[in-house]
Nucleic acid binder design. Structure first.
Length: 475
RNA sequence: CGGGGUGUAGCGCAGUCCGGUCUAGCGCGCCUGGUUCGGGACCAGGAGGUCGGAGGUUCAAAUCCUCUCACCCCGACCA
């Protein structure tokens, strides 16, 4: 069927690369670890941006833009932050033909430049909360990269908020991880686990980190979004204080939260199949493609005219008519499948004669004949159903691959096969997680918010635990 | 940075072990013309290559030697 896509069952990571490259989502760049995002991939990122941007604004945030160059000294102001990011920073040492007095880091994240600026913007409780987001590129010099999932430069959004109290910052941190959950589930059709990161996994410079974790088709976890309560760490590092109602000077409380182009990779690994990309309708830049079928010029004219008529009333961006003459219909079918267009409408002379069309859904491949009259309603319902079905399938898969395990021996045997493991682990003790990582290359993905109270012994040390955490191998 | 692999036309590959038949070939794609068109059409003609790079051995190198670069996969770091 599909030309040159490795089967998932043969080699999952090669399959992923094949899909991304063959569907023309991205290309390698001349620089190691960087990628060119092609229109098919960028269009999906744009849909992600549009919807998230709306959700951020609906929750009271505004966009701004901070520069990508950060004085090296800024990064050093917060101890944990430096330690976490220094090794992966790209540094600019020259400019204008001269060595710079102070090297500039290309932002790996913007906390430092933003808090150095917030210092000037905040003086009173009346300036709070400050709720700003930015869409930007960032750069992290990773040892090993993978298209979309981890690249040296990537695109993301980063929200940076300032609050008067710890509680308000907490409310914000929690609210935003739930925005991410809402987005992942309802737009990406990607079920996620929502919870808190362990000390070992949290953001460098956060008090605590909340996250959404998704499960890919091979059972590995993907951190899909994070929201951090930064407490007063950055406010102290950059001396950001405000005068409160009570007249006292206090350090501001902060949060930051982000998702990146990694989501595009997560979408691929959640929904796509051996025939190529499968895009959930709500992330499809163009959800519908008409493939005309004709033999002679008269038929071509007839069929295209009918397609135009059928599409009348639909937003121009909602559909496209593939009137390329140099390809046969079968070729076009295969190509649009590879590129993941959710709904294909086949229309030929026979359909025109019967005043109907053939409608095919990408996720299941099901075909049905639909009367012209019913087409709009049918397609709109179909897209909604696909969206729901894709989520349901992914959710079922996640549930079926989430296991409850009590013995470390059993865990060690099974975790490499993929899946989420609900286990008792003394995560407060960092050595426990470290040992597990050494033994199994797996980590605690999160402490789910909805973990029921349950008591049992840590599977490694036997220490008493009062709930289970979720551990898995991850990307 | 370790371990494995691959670099030959836009893509996928053969040729490399055992140097000469390679003036480098095949499939797909591309260009021209015609016939086709309901699941990746067919025929005919054509364009396209510093064989990853540098150095060496040789009468002769895609092929042997040395060095080097890039990319992919698997680990250690991470959204």
């Amino acid at each position: 069927m599909s030309k040159g896509i490795t089967k998932r069952s043969d080699d999952y990571s090669q399959w992923y690369l094949d899909v991304v490259l063959k569907a023309e989502m991205a290309d390698y760049s001349p620089v190691r670890g960087c990628m060119v995002i092609r229109p098919t991939g960028y269009g999906i990122w744009e849909k992600i941006q549009q919807q998230l941007d709306r959700m951020f604004k609906e929750t009271g945030h505004v966009n701004a833009y901070f520069p990508m160059f950060i004085p090296e000294s800024f990064l050093q102001k917060e101890a944990e932050h430096v330690e976490g990011f220094a090794p992966e920073c790209a540094m600019v040492t020259h400019g204008g033909g001269k060595k710079l007095e102070e090297p500039l880091a290309i932002r790996p994240t913007s906390e430092t430049i933003i808090w150095s600026t917030y210092k000037n913007w905040i003086s009173s409780h009346r300036d709070l909360p400050l709720l700003i987001n930015q869409w930007a590129n960032v750069c992290r010099w990773e040892m090993r990269t993978r298209l979309f999932l981890r690249t040296t430069e990537f695109l993301w959004q980063e929200g940076h908020t300032a609050h008067a109290t710890h509680e308000e910052a907490e409310e914000e941190t929690f609210k935003m991880v739930n925005v991410y959950r809402d987005f992942a589930e309802n737009y990406m059709a990607m079920p996620v686990l929502v919870g808190r990161k362990t000390e070992a996994e949290k953001f460098a410079g956060a008090e605590h980190t909340y996250c959404i974790e998704a499960m890919m088709q091979d059972g590995k976890a993907l951190q899909a979004g994070t929201s951090h309560h930064l407490g007063q760490k950055f406010a102290q590092a950059f001396d950001v204080k405000f005068q409160d109602k009570d007249g006292e000077l206090k350090y501001v409380q902060a949060s930051s939260w982000g998702v990146s182009t990694r989501l595009v990779g997560g979408m691929v690994m959640t929904h796509s199949d051996d025939n190529g990309l499968v895009v959930p309708p709500r992330l499809a830049p163009t959800p519908v493609v008409f493939v005309p079928i004709y033999r002679k010029d008269e038929e071509r004219a007839l069929v295209l005219e009918k397609a135009e008529a059928l599409a009348a009333g639909w937003d121009k961006l909602f559909y496209k008519i593939d009137d390329r003459d140099q390809y046969k219909p079968g070729y076009k079918f295969a190509e649009w499948e590879l590129k993941g267009i959710p709904v294909r409408i086949e229309i030929g002379p026979r359909d025109v004669a019967s005043d109907s069309v053939v409608v095919v859904r990408r996720d299941t491949g099901e075909k049905e004949s639909v009367s012209a009259e019913a087409l709009h309603g049918h397609v709109e319902t179909l897209l909604e159903n696909m969206q729901a079905d894709m989520f349901a399938r992914a959710k079922k898969r996640m549930e079926e691959n989430t296991f409850t395990v009590d013995s470390y021996e059993e865990y060690k045997e099974r975790v490499a096969d993929g899946g989420f493991y609900r286990v008792f682990l003394d995560h407060a003790n960092p050595e426990v997680e470290q040992q597990m990582q050494e033994d199994t290359r797996s980590t605690i993905r999160c402490i789910p918010f909805d973990a029921p109270e349950e008591s049992g012994p840590c599977m490694i040390t036997g220490a008493p635990c009062s709930y289970r955490v979720v551990a898995a191998q991850s990307y």
